[in-house]
Design a binder for these strands. Structure first.
Lengths: 240, 240
DNA sequence: AAGAACTACTGGTCTTACCACTTGACGTCT
DNA sequence: AGACGTCAAGTGGTAAGACCAGTAGTTCTT
């Protein structure tokens, strides 16, 4: 029996989700006006403040433009949204979007080595020591789910060492997309997160402040699983 | 006379801004509870729905965790925030944060060539043709402000050509940080946005589907101004 | 000492009313 | 005919107050 916490969606949550669904699904096209708050409240059977909260959140995410006195306009989420929207695009309606998944993999493989390089330049021994501890923790388990979480901790430390706020934020965004899928990815990620030697090599390169070596080590660590998953995506896409 | 649109911050805007300021400034530390909605409404002299809207927006941005029945907790924005927070970190209180600026430059130089490479693989002639048009438009002006906007249009097309949603979202985030500073950067960016030949070279590489050439061309285009600005930041940081 | 019930918070939601802004239609001057 | 006010309708912005629904700590009961 696999019990999971019940998801208690609040009313504004629900409204937000529905509106976003309409947008991603294409029913609410860009540059078209959203129905008025009162209208939405009536149609959805909720209060106007609830609708407002949802709409304000959409505005915060850049999905709509709200102008006092005029109708609020839907914007092209592809052009305005930040990485925080990634989880919803990756799994729209529970189904994995292959194009988005490919994009995430590409980005991961491109960003990871750079972060490792910066960490080698700036992180120093403190980062390396913390990484050693994490690798030790990884050695204590075989469970690929736990291993993935530990690997995320590991990268979190590398990102700290890189000391570059933009890469930190990019990492945050990618992690948010990755986490919901962690269980589904247990099998494909097992070879990567089980490759402790690669994690140690990277930690040592960072300790030695050898940024080219760190770069290569990170690529060595990330490439195999990335290549495998990209190949799988290619096959799936051809099937259709 | 340089008239500018008056900024009409709504009450929730103002509340959001104040809370964020306290967080970035350190007065509201991570893992500490926020005052209750009623208390905040009272202290700030606004209605509770207004406070709620602000807090919901913070939750949307990952800055706080709100749990029904318990106090809402402040989270470490460095660890949770996405790129959408970048503009506020870059110019906290009107003053440029040099470390953040350095980080933006690093990211730009690392992401740009990769996007160009992908655009060469996937964009094809359509992308190249659109780029040609944009370069023509750039040739029609000397104003560095206008040129920067055109250059953004140019990159926007390249990103479209790259057809990778994650890089698109990263670009969106960087652009949002860049745009408010566009006037202040007129002088330092002038050499880059005035280098039309570099933009043409990149467009041609994309047309030829020559991804290594596109990569190099993008780097060639971005590196000079990046290096100059990084050097300037180094000097400013040493002064202190 | 362990458990159940209670209490005092917290956020969640709704209703109602009114303010402020934008737009476009209409009328009025020039 | 054109330019300029005026006004009405619709939109988002804000407030106040009431009540529902969770959480956590205290107190009472056993």
């Amino acid at each position: 029996m696999a019990l999971r916490p019940v998801s208690r969606r609040s009313v504004p949550d629900e409204v937000f989700e529905q509106l976003l669904g309409e947008m991603v699904g294409g029913a609410l096209a860009a540059d078209e006006p959203l129905p008025s708050e009162r209208r939405l409240a009536e149609v959805l059977g909720v209060s106007r403040p609830a609708v407002r909260e949802a709409i304000q959140r959409m505005a915060q995410a850049g999905l709509v433009d709200v102008r006092h006195g005029d109708a609020t306009m839907v914007r092209d989420f592809r052009r305005r949204a930040g990485l925080d929207l990634l989880p919803r695009l990756l799994l729209p309606g529970g189904q994995l979007d292959l194009a988005v998944a490919r994009s995430v993999l590409e980005a991961r493989l491109h960003i990871g080595p750079k972060i490792a390089e910066l960490a080698a330049q700036r992180g120093g021994r403190d980062t390396a020591a913390a990484l050693d501890d994490t690798v030790k923790a990884m050695a204590g388990t075989e469970d690929p789910i736990v291993l993935q979480h530990r690997a995320l901790d590991y990268w979190d430390l590398v990102v700290d060492g890189a000391d570059s706020i933009v890469f930190r934020m990019m990492f945050n965004g990618l992690r948010l997309a990755y986490q919901p899928a962690i269980e589904a990815l247990a099998t494909v990620m097992a070879p990567e997160v089980g490759n402790l030697e690669a994690y140690r090599t990277l930690a040592n390169a960072i300790r030695a402040a050898d940024s080219p070596a760190a770069r290569d080590a990170a690529e060595e660590l990330l490439r195999p699983a990335t290549a495998q998953m990209l190949a799988a995506i290619d096959m799936l896409q051809e099937d259709r």
